[in-house]
Design a protein around this nucleic acid. Sequence first.
DNA 1: CGCGTCACGGTTGAT
DNA 2: TTATCAACCGTGACG
Length: 285
Amino acid sequence: MIVCMRERAHCFRVCSFAEPAFGEVNQLGGVFVNGRPLPNAIRLRIVELAQLGIRPCDISRQLRVSHGCVSKILARYNETGSILPGAIGGSKPRVTTPTVVKHIRTYKQRDPGIFAWEIRDRLLADGVCDKYNVPSVSSISRILRNKIGNLSQQSQYDSYKQHQPPPQPALPYNHIYSYPSPITAAAAKVPTPPGVPGIPGNMAMPRTWPSSHSVTDILGIRSITDQGNKWSPSRQQFCVSIQHGSLSYPSPSATLYDIQCCSFWLCCWTWLAACWQHSTFPPQL
DNA sequence: CGCGTCACGGTTGAT
DNA sequence: TTATCAACCGTGACG
């Protein structure tokens, strides 16, 4: 254990742009965030390379991901057929099982004015629960609020929606790497570095990650210029990609880390695009 | 040298 | 609103 803890000193935090925890660097030079899954693009790349017959050790070196991680991802893929990480966090329901929730929903639908303690009594009376696993009144209240609370509000919402203009179609992005929406708001709060143009509203969209964790890949340079080592985008193509949000990065869930990554890349992309568009590429530092 | 496994410190989200 | 807890994560060392 002591040895392990000592060895962890090899890791160090990098990129003070988005402290406190934007990432660390492993022994291979790859960037990772402790406790968080690798981006889906990396996971997908690992599987793709393995299917091309590349050995795990070579994949590890090429993508700068520890071989233990490569082994784990490939093993999971072989077992489940999925590249996605497992469900992180949360805990299994102890008393509020799906069955209990279903009964609570039924009670509420039949009698919208029913009290939580009445529901509790009915769960006992109907034999859905016994005295050992019946949810507390506060638990029932939480279920009503979080899972069933919109029953009585649904009609109001529908009425409201009918008077609203139809939603604008979202910008296209790779659905495989879809991002929940919280980034949109969060990205808008990102401070703009000096000399970097503001982030347009339509940039705060779900997108995919660069294909590697190296510094150049974080900046996205390799993912653009290294596609088969042949394709090289014109300056216009690059800027259009920026403006349309088609340069993207994925994550299984929008967390602070994800938001920080999005914000960081967003700023980098925007900055590079602006420099390029104004013929100052590479950027003048 | 390559690979599977495990302890570790960390994150996450339901309860 | 906060604390707890059990799930997961990737790294790095070991065999």
